[in-house]
Nucleic acid binder design. Sequence first.
DNA 1: AACCCGGGGCT
DNA 2: AGCCCAGGGTT
Length: 300
Amino acid sequence: MPPTSPTRETAHTPDHRVTTVIDWFHREARDLPWREADRTPWGVLVSEVMLQQTPVVRVLPVWREWMERWPTPRDLAHATQADAVRAWGRLGYPRRAKRLWECALVLVERHNGHVPSSREDLLALPGIGDYTAGAVRAFAFGERDIVLDTNIRRVIGRAWRAEPLPAAHQTRAERELADSLVPASAPASVAWNAGSMELGALVCTARAPKCAECPLRHDCAWIAAGSPGLDDAPRRTQAWHGTDRQVRGRIMALLRESRGPLALDEHCALDDVDADQRHRALTGLVADGLITKAADGYSL
DNA sequence: AACCCGGGGCT
DNA sequence: AGCCCAGGGTT
């Protein structure tokens, strides 16, 4: 048996903070349907796309409806894009529904109706980026991978680097630190990925962290430094009222609820919207492939 | 690197 | 009323 060098020993001994998060997760994990033993890779993929920028409580009912209607990629591939966009409801960012539907078509055509498990194949799917590819590999297939969403970035930034909030863009150093923290064994890596994400979502939240209940409160570099910098950290304010995004959302809502085409260029429900902005929203939605325009009006 | 893209619930 | 949030694609 070869002697183990100190550096290798260090690299393979999990940081005790990682172990603490894993233990906490085994005690406190929420019961979510896409975490059940009977979950499918397709269900996990759908959940991850829905959870991009949308909180769990809003995703739950829509995910259940999708799984009931379209339990496999083949089922969704037999539906229309309009069906998918309607069933998306008010989750927001409806391009995700379109891409999920396109995803189902690709899975049928190129992967025999199954979700692939390699990073390369996953990244080639529409709407699947770096985060979602890692999440599907970890949570659907139990593979060891790096999953670096905003929650995990915040937990690592605070507990290991004493930083109040993650920077706008990932750095190489951050990526390497995150990589070094992922346990070597696949099951432990999955528990770390899910657990650090859960900790960030429930306890180590962005603006009002519940440090008193945190399993890392005695080991957190940020707390040890006096929890600096949170109040004066820049806020990402995003206007909403009167924006193009709001108008697009209103148009999508009108079309979801309409059975036939709508003459939206002169629709009374959009009377309060500036004509230029209305036109911009409509042409943008057509360009995005979310709606179509015909002689009798717009439809999904 | 910068920009665009929803929406609801909480404080 | 303001603030928060399980990203991805395009330019």
